[in-house]
Computed example of a mutant assay.
Amino acid sequence: MSEKVNIKQLALELNISIATVSKALNDSYEISLKTKNRVWDLAKQLNYTPNPAASNLRSNKTKTIAVILPCVANNFFSLAIKGIEEIARKYGFHVLIYQTHEDCEMEISFINSLLNGRVDGILTSVSSSEDNADYYENLVKKVPLVFFDRVYENLDTFKVTTDDYHISYQATSHLIECGCKKLAYLYGLENLPAGKARFSGFKDAIDANGLTISDDFIVKYSDDENTNLEHIKVLLNHHKPDALFSSIEEFVIPSYTACKELRLEIPKDIKILSFSNLATAKLLNPSLTTITQPAFEIGNEAAKCLFKILTKRGIDDDKSIILKSELIKRASTGC
């Protein structure tokens, strides 16, 4: 049966026109997603297999999108990918994933290789190593592109982020309410709006409570975990903060390790909280207070935005979408 099934049979089965089936199979913006899903589901059930080469030539589409991000192993990005894939499947699209490993040159190389029509659109969370805003300002004019989490502001495309400033302010206030007065900041993503917003929320909460922070209480992220560990140990030994606010989860293990090596008890001697989507955060000893981002929802929303561009629907909607993170209080802050 699978060898004989054709568009006409799909149309008869669904009681819709042959033209509607054809447009649905080719992902036409004229057809609703509900109808497309009906057609795609039946086509799959009956093993309908159109000629992909001919179909792509007619529609000038690859039915493929690319996701470019720093690291697949990161808990946040692995959840975001799941959110992206859920939407891509609904539209019958494949997803290609590229890891930049925080290398801007690799990021640009990947994207340039995709500009020859290999994909219909790109979702990206940019590298933190340097500012590439000028490159992306030209890129958004050439290819459907949506930023998520790590973005460049003031570009004419959709951007899906979280409330980094407000949640940082809230988390810092929580530490102060727990009795902390000498707060240290572990600074990641300093070249990106997200990193700057997190630090601004932290600093403004410090100022609002009549406290101060010096450069000695700020540790900047290094790609080398041992370097981060040594810097945190120097901070704890020489300046004796009573709290560590980590802006990225890569600081979590070095922070716990440093406290263990220096025989500092968490949260009695020092309190710790971090931006983190670590599934094991509640299993750490003590369990880690986290600022948890809605990673799946961010990926999901970003993919929806990309398909707005591809289907030419909703492209005039608000292009700056901000989702809310959650402060999850656990034992590492102790109150």
Rank of each mutant, 00 (worst) to 15 (best):
A73E: 14
A66Y: 04
R58M: 05
L69Y: 03
S59Q: 02
L57F: 11
I65H: 04
P52C: 03
A53D: 10
K63S: 08
K61N: 03
S78Y: 04
F76T: 05
S78M: 06
A80M: 03
T64K: 11
K61T: 06
T64Y: 12
S78E: 00
V67G: 05
A54N: 11
L79E: 11
C71H: 12
A66C: 00
S55T: 09
N51C: 07
A53E: 07
N56A: 12
I65W: 03
L69I: 14
A73P: 10
L69S: 09
L79C: 04
K61E: 05
C71L: 13
T64M: 13
C71Q: 14
T64C: 11
S55F: 07
K61Q: 15
K63F: 14
A53Q: 08
L79M: 01
N74E: 14
A80H: 01
I68S: 14
A53K: 13
N51G: 01
K61F: 09
K63C: 08
I68C: 14
S78A: 11
I65M: 10
I81A: 02
C71P: 02
C71S: 15
A53M: 11
T64S: 15
T62K: 13
T64P: 03
V67Y: 05
K82P: 01
I68Q: 15
N56Y: 05
L69F: 00
P52K: 13
N51D: 15
T62F: 01
S78T: 07
K82H: 06
L79S: 08
N60F: 02
I68R: 08
K61S: 12
A54Y: 04
V67A: 13
N56K: 14
I65C: 08
F77C: 12
K63D: 12
P70V: 10
T64E: 02
N51E: 05
V67R: 02
T64V: 05
V72D: 02
P70T: 12
N51W: 06
T64W: 07
N60I: 02
T62E: 05
A66S: 04
S55Q: 15
S55I: 06
